[in-house]
Write a protein that binds this DNA or RNA. Structure first.
Lengths: 215, 215
DNA sequence: AATTACGGAGAACAGTTGTTAACTGGATGA
DNA sequence: TCATCCAGTTAACAACTGTTCTCCGTAATT
């Protein structure tokens, strides 16, 4: 279906990706709204004007970063919620999966956490849309579970939003622990503390879920 | 104890406050890390160099804004969790209190939500510290409740963090709804949808809390 | 083989930024 | 009343920003 890219388009995509990577790196200690176009091109080693061949503006690049950062999550999300074993096992697996994802893509996680409420409107909207899709995916997965019997669509969406938010909070905590570890301010104990905190919070939520239709 | 401020110190505090207010206003559509010193002084109508009489840097001003934005919340938090009535009434009151706070101080709420994971480290740390104090206050309030019998200190802190995070998520949703309303993209129905979503999420959490020690 | 398309370079533009130094004028305290 | 203090001003600095226009070399197309 897709034959080999022309050597021209290949080069273009290569520098485009280099721009995205450089931007993500520079965003380690600043927000998107202060990221300069020249700053990015300088980091890549390309003329400032070349930027316009790929993105209309920094905000545009930001939106592209949202796709890159959140696009790969969809599959993972589904497998996280799906597994059929006991609740505790499922929670442990979810927390572990989040931790692994943060370790695999720390810059992506930081970017999403930072720009979700950041100063660039189009990027905020892109993140909100993607997270909304996540929540709907989670809802349809939750609906498969026999425990969802008697639940209204609305309540399922309420729960899935809770899960998605909780996932982000946990991811952000992992990231913090990771950074503290890198700069020597903390150790593996802190990471374990995050694991136990997140695990118990998810357990409390799943208990609430179990008794939602009780009285 | 505090006699009338000298007309000199009074003027100083006045322009200092003007700087804080102007900064908060300018942060409506950008992040702190892109806020310029000159931008702020220009908005106040004062020379750029006057800035240094009050703050060492923009980051320093940001930390001051954290105190201003979160300092007033402590009392409110306590009264929110404390009320002795039924769970549903308590939840309704909490959600209403958050909504009122967002309407009263929208810029403060946006600032905290934005800079909690923002690009300026000292500000992030200040927010983290303040929120940590909140969580501890909430924990000691929760400990008074007879429902907390048998709970470990650790579990109570876990729950209070859940409450604090949930409060922020809800506040941010209210803010979003408010802004959508202002720009005509949405109406009061959206605001009501947020109320119902937040209410049910808090209800699910409180159900989980009730059955935490069950089996 | 000749022509077009196009990613990138180069130079220049008007503005902007943070920070420095030396200065001013009115409140403060002796 | 007089000397001191100090919030705010003025002027200047080198460095930086986004954006435009023109040009170049090479891959793609004919």
């Amino acid at each position: 279906m897709s034959h080999t890219l022309g050597i021209r388009q290949a080069q273009k995509q290569k520098t485009r990706q280099a721009l995205l990577d450089a931007a993500l790196g520079l965003l380690e200690d600043q927000s998107l709204s202060s990221l300069g176009l020249r700053e990015v091109t300088r980091a890549v080693g390309v003329a400032p004007t070349a930027f316009y061949r790929h993105f209309r503006s920094i905000a545009d690049l930001g939106v592209a970063l949202v796709e890159e950062a959140l696009g790969s999550l969809h599959a993972m999300i589904r497998t996280t919620v799906t597994t059929a074993e006991s609740s505790d096992v499922r929670i442990a697996r979810a927390v572990d999966l989040i931790a692994r994802h943060v370790n695999a893509y720390p810059a992506h996680v930081r970017f999403i956490a930072r720009e979700r409420h950041g100063g660039v409107q189009p990027v905020r909207e892109a993140i909100r849309d993607q997270l909304g899709r996540f929540a709907e995916e989670v809802r349809t997965e939750l609906a498969r579970d026999p425990a969802a019997e008697g639940w209204s669509e609305d309540d399922l969406l309420m729960l899935s939003h809770l899960y998605v938010d909780q996932m982000l909070v946990t991811g952000s905590l992992f990231l913090e622990a990771r950074e503290a570890q890198e700069s020597g301010r903390a150790s593996a104990e802190d990471l374990d503390r995050v694991v136990r905190l997140a695990t118990r919070q998810m357990r409390l939520i799943s208990i609430g879920r179990r008794h939602w239709l009780d009285p």
